[in-house]
Structures are given as C-alpha cells and as structure tokens.
Simulated assay, not measured.
Amino acid sequence: MNITGNTIFIPGATSGIGLALALRLQQKGNTVIVGGRRTELLEQIRTEHPDIHTVAIDTTDPGSIDAAAASVIAEHPDLNVLVTMAGIMRVEDWTSPAGFLATAEATVTTNLLGPIRLIGAFIEHLQTRPHATIMTVSSGLAFTPLRVTPTYNATKAAIHMLSESLRLQFDGTTVEIVELVPPAVRTDLMPGQRDSEFAMPLDDFVTEVIELIDTQPDATEIQVDRVKFLRHAESRGDYAEVVATLNRLDPH
C-alpha cells in the first residue's frame, strides 16, 4: 500500500485507532472518509477536521452498508482503499450459558459479518481501480487467546484467515490485501483499557503503523513491535508461556 495519493474509506473511525489513523493518513496526502453510527461524533469530526469527509454507516446493518457504499463511491469515485476498522470487544463467561450468547452473536455480527459485508459492497468498485487495497484489522489475540474474550479472539482469528485466503484469490490482480495486527492499544475498546499500562499508547501505535506502511509498501501484515510477542508465540515455540503471561497480566 502506498502511503500517499489514495482515497480511503475507514468505517468505524469516529474514535480510537480508526480516527487516529484517519487523521495521520490525511496528513500524508490522502483523501480520507470516516464512517460511523453516532452522528454527533461525525459532526464533531467535520467541525474539528474539515478536511476529513464523513458518512453515516452501521456496519451491523446490511442495508446501511449498501447505502453508505453507494454514497461514498458516488461522491469519491477515486476511492481505492477500504479499511475495515469497526469492531467490538466484550467480556464473556461461557460457563454461564445465559450470560454469553447475545454478546457472542453481537461480536460475530460486528467483527466478522461487518468486514465481509463491507468488502462485498466495495469489491466491484475496487477492482476497477489501477491500484487498490483492502486493509483488514485483526489482533494479536487472533494468535494468542485472552481468556475473558473468547468470541473476540475467534472473530479476529477468522479475519486473519480471511485475509490470507483473499490474498490468494486476488493474487495477480490490482487489489492487494493488507492485514493490520494491533496489540492492546490505549483506547476505549474495553473498560479501563485507555489507562492500562499493559496497552500501547495510541499515538505511538499509529506513528509506528504509518512508518511501517511508508517503509514497507509491499507488506502483507502490519505488525508493530509490541504485537510480535503474541503474533509469533507459536512459531517461536513459547506459546504456552505467552498464553500464561498474557492472562496473568490481563486486568480482567
């Protein structure tokens, strides 16, 4: 992925990693459109960052995805990058069946069906562009599980394998598949995460991501150094130790 000269749509970018990444990419010379459900946040972004474009979208709603895709493509026909950022992370207790099913289903809808539907809505257009990128967003927890978030872990593992599979299908075309693999980052994804010493400062994370995209334009995975502890545990041969360490450190 080139670091500049793109038209980029980032649904799920009204806060956290998505918004921080959108602002940095706009500063690098890209046209950036952010999407989200909360209209008050979209209005705030338009006011504070007039060079950022916005569109209302609920990635849990297929109709909303289709409407937003039609609007974005009509207003920004040069669109060539889709970043499937939207996601949720919730604590679950599978030992109490009544306490996890609704949360698990919502997580699958947002974290897995959302990106699948987004790609489905944009892929025909992206294939018309001379150079296009789909950036998926998995997690270090796709590779090393956190005990309290089983469905989140599973959906991110699915996103990783989806990314690997789509890369095979689009090999030789103008569409590239890039997977962003974040560690825990200081955002509001989970209660208390913004102030967690275990999580990576947001500004540091986005700075490293931008540097990696800039210096490694052909990378298929964007891995900051902080996530490699989780990402490569199995290949290093210390998977059991990493799982134990992660779940000992986790504040939940």
Rank of each mutant, 00 (worst) to 15 (best):
N80Y: 10
F100Y: 14
I123V: 15
G99T: 11
I119E: 08
A106V: 05
G35Y: 08
W94Q: 11
G114F: 03
E43Q: 12
L126M: 07
V108W: 04
T54G: 09
A56Y: 10
V91S: 09
T110P: 01
G99P: 04
T54W: 08
N111T: 04
P50M: 04
T128D: 11
Q127Y: 10
A102H: 09
R38C: 14
P62I: 04
L126N: 03
F100H: 07
T103E: 07
L42R: 02
D78W: 00
E75A: 14
A56T: 15
L42H: 01
P77E: 12
D78R: 14
T110M: 05
W94G: 05
T84K: 01
L41K: 15
T31W: 03
A98K: 12
T110S: 06
T107P: 01
V81Y: 06
L42W: 00
Q44G: 05
L41R: 13
A68Y: 08
H53Q: 11
N80V: 06
N30R: 02
A106H: 01
Q27H: 10
H76F: 15
A68C: 07
A56K: 11
M85F: 02
I116A: 13
V55N: 09
A69W: 03
G63L: 10
T84I: 00
I65A: 01
H76Q: 12
L101D: 03
P115N: 07
Q26N: 11
D93G: 03
L25Y: 04
L42T: 05
A74M: 13
A69H: 07
V91C: 06
T110C: 05
A121P: 06
Q27M: 11
V81G: 05
P62H: 07
R37I: 09
G29S: 08
L101E: 11
L79S: 13
H76Y: 13
L112E: 00
H125V: 03
V72A: 07
E92I: 08
G120W: 07
S64V: 07
G36C: 02
I33R: 05
Q127I: 05
